[in-house]
Structure formats: structure tokens, C-alpha cells
Design a protein around this nucleic acid. Structure first.
Lengths: 212, 212
DNA sequence: CAAATATGAACGAGCGCTCAGTCACACTAC
DNA sequence: GTAGTGTGACTGAGCGCTCGTTCATATTTG
């Protein structure tokens, strides 16, 4: 029973060459993302996905066992890109409170850029079979974990006041979700704030919340 | 061209008696909500909705022109219930910072109780035809507006420090979304916090953010 | 009985997915 | 070299089925 590409997924495929599988699946994801964003998962047909990829439907099903497989591939790809963006941002570890401000700025900017993708995950995660929904939610936790670590490091260095573990974790969730908020309330917020306004106001709040 | 019940919707119906329409539609909503929550909108069939209501499919289509009509009725009903809960809470206007704390407590409790319903709106609003999606989003704005007013009143009374209009509005959005956060991250949060923990931690943050 | 309300068989468009078959290419035998 | 054979990526017509919706008909109401 041949299994998937070199990496972490269990999606079965008929195709033997793992590099081809990886490349084809990247093509499928690239084609499916705009379709899912535009019409949603349920209103996108497998034939449309195949056509957008430049495949026959038959070929699509050589690389994927079901339409839901495509959604999972898409969700994974999106998370990977968001996480890469955030990780990049966290690498440049400045010091002091500005470090937190910089972190928030980078993260919110990623959210701004990935607007539609983040929305897609909010709306379609529920359409995944349980096994994969779980994986997507684990990704979400891992992302928040990055903030937990960053906050803990700053506190350890004395750059931020001491807090209980519970508080740190909740603040990390708040930061994550306030980034998402820009995407799912953008239809309203963007009428009143630029992304810059939004970042500086929210940063002010979060810093204030840490004992301004 | 006969029009809808006494209230605000434009949904057409074949049935002449407005009270009957209102009653039947309430039945439809009551039956559809648990189905949509359990299986989602797309995977729920009109026949299932009819059966759960105790109607024949034909009869369902006397009170509704399409499946999407049902979704719209459901979204409206949910918003009405949430808004009623929040309004009740805001009526008992205490004074000082405790007023804000009490407001948050009540609102978060409503979110806790309406967990699945709020999630449903997050996930299925996009499935509505544009015209009704707009209405649902207006409801969302109105809800946040309640918090804007409440905050403005407290500031006017000198119970809270002065803030720009922009800040007030964004804080209102933050409160709204942090309530929702309990519903859409509950799968994680509930493992680490009780709703009481959650309320008191978040209240602390929000009060701190207002110049603790 | 006339109007209003209710029924559910029937419709047909459209869906996800399959599978018998094609084709380009690589390897072997002579 | 070239004929023979095997492999695996790729094709797309079409299967089986579900779904939202309609409408001729039946039942109830006033």
C-alpha cells in the first residue's frame, strides 16, 4: 500500500513517485484555495478543482481520495504559511516591551495579508472529517503556543511583569484571536481603521493590559 | 404578492394568514437549529428539516421559498435571542467599574449559553445570499453598538477614564469578540479554564486595559 | 362548495467518484 | 537498432445517487 509524500500526511495516492505527488498536490492546493475562498468548499465541485489545476478529474483522484482530502491539504498549507510568517517575526528577538509590540505588529500583518485564508479556515474547518479537524485545531494551538513562549521569554528576562501561567496562556489566545478579528470583522473595521490604526490601538491595549 | 409575517422579513409565502405564518416559521426555526448545529447547513436536507418540524416537504415550501430562507430565519432568531439577553443585562445599570464588570459577566454568560448558536452564525453566514448576509452583519454591528453605548455612558458618568471615540469602538469590538472566543476556542479553553475563570481573567484584562 | 392549507410522488440537474482504456516511455532480447 | 514487453501517469464518459424544488391532488376550514 503506497503512502504519501515524504512529509506528515496520511493521504493515500495511486501514484508511486513521491516527488511527483508533492508537486501535484501543491498544484492542487494552489488551484483550490481561490476557489474555496470565492465559493466556499461545498459549492466548489471536484470538476472545478480539476479544471483549475489543469487536470482531468480522473487524475485529481490519483492524488487524493476525496474532496475532503483537498480541503485538508489546503488547511495544512495555509497554516504552514501563517506559522512560517509568525516564526520569521519571532526570530528577530528584540528586547523590552518593544519586542512584544514588534511581535504583535508582525503577526497582525501576517493576518492582514492572509485575510481570506484565515477566514476560510474559520468557516470550513467544520467540514473536515473529525480526524483531520483535530489536526487543524492542533495547528491552531501550536500557533498560540509560539506566543506563550515569546511572552514567557520576555517575562523571564524581566521585560514584562510576572504573570501566572494561566494569564500568559490566555493573553496569548487573546493576541491570536485579535489578529483573526481583523480578518473576520474587516468588513466593518476597515471602514473605520487602517491596518496601521488597528495595530497601534490594539498594541496599546495589550501593553496596557500587561500593567501599563 | 403576499408578504411575510408582521415583522421585518421579506420572505414570500403562499399562506395568507400572517399569524399562521409566524407560528409555522417559529416551528421551522426550532426544528432547524439543532439540525444545523449538528450537521451544518449544507449537510442538512430540506426533507430532514420538514420531518423535524413535522411537516411534509410541500408544506415547508409554503412558508419558505428556499433552503437558504430557512438559514436566514435561523440566523435572525439567534441574533434576537442573543440581543435580548444582552439588553436584559445592560438594563440593570449599576455604577462604576463594577458596572462594566457586570456587563461583561452577563454577556459572556450569554455566549456560554448560546455557544453552538454563535458558532453556527460564524460558520454559516457565508452560505447566505448577499442580501441577507448583509442583514446578519448589521445585527452584529448593532450588538457591538450596545457596548459602545454602555461604555460611553460610563465614561460620561466619570466611572471610566476618557477615551477617543475610536478607542471606545474598538474596545466594544474586543469585548464582543472575546465573548465569541469562548465559543470558538472552547474545545481548548474549557480544558484549562471554567467559564468563571474565563470571565474573571478577561474582565481583569479589559479593566486593566482601561487604565488600571 | 370555495378557499385555504397540506400532501408526497415525481422531476431532473448536478454531484462525487470509478474504471476500462490510452499513451509515452523505459527496459530487455536479439 | 528494433521489436517486444511492462509500467505508471493520465483520460473522461458515465454510474449511482442525492438533492432542492414543484405540482396535481387531497383534506380541512369557514
Amino acid at each position: 500500500m503506497p503512502t504519501a509524500t515524504a512529509s506528515k500526511t496520511d493521504i493515500e495516492t495511486q501514484v508511486k513517485n513521491p516527488e511527483l505527488v508533492a508537486r501535484r498536490r501543491r498544484q492542487i492546493v494552489d488551484a483550490a484555495v481561490p476557489l474555496f475562498i470565492e465559493k466556499g468548499f461545498h459549492k466548489t465541485t471536484t470538476r472545478q478543482i480539476a479544471a483549475a489545476t489543469g487536470f482531468s478529474i480522473g487524475l485529481l483522484y490519483e492524488y487524493v481520495r476525496s474532496k475532503e482530502d483537498v480541503l485538508y491539504l489546503v488547511c495544512e498549507a495555509i497554516h504552514q504559511e501563517v506559522e512560517r510568517g509568525v516564526n520569521d517575526a519571532l526570530q528577530r528577538h528584540e528586547r523590552g516591551r518593544e519586542a512584544l509590540a514588534a511581535m504583535i505588529r508582525e503577526y497582525f500583518t501576517v493576518c492582514h495579508r492572509m485575510n481570506d485564508h484565515i477566514l476560510l479556515i474559520y468557516q470550513e474547518t467544520q467540514s473536515l472529517p473529525p480526524h483531520w479537524r483535530k489536526r487543524v485545531l492542533e495547528n491552531e494551538v501550536r500557533l498560540t503556543g509560539l506566543f506563550v513562549n515569546a511572552l514567557a521569554r520576555l517575562i523571564a528576562h524581566g521585560d514584562l511583569p510576572k504573570l501566572t501561567e494561566q494569564s500568559i496562556e490566555l493573553i496569548a489566545h487573546n493576541i491570536t484571536v485579535l489578529g483573526h478579528m481583523w480578518t473576520f470583522r474587516r468588513w466593518f473595521l476597515a471602514r473605520h481603521y487602517s491596518i496601521e490604526d488597528y495595530i497601534s490601538l490594539q498594541t496599546g491595549f495589550i501593553l496596557g493590559l500587561l500593567g501599563g
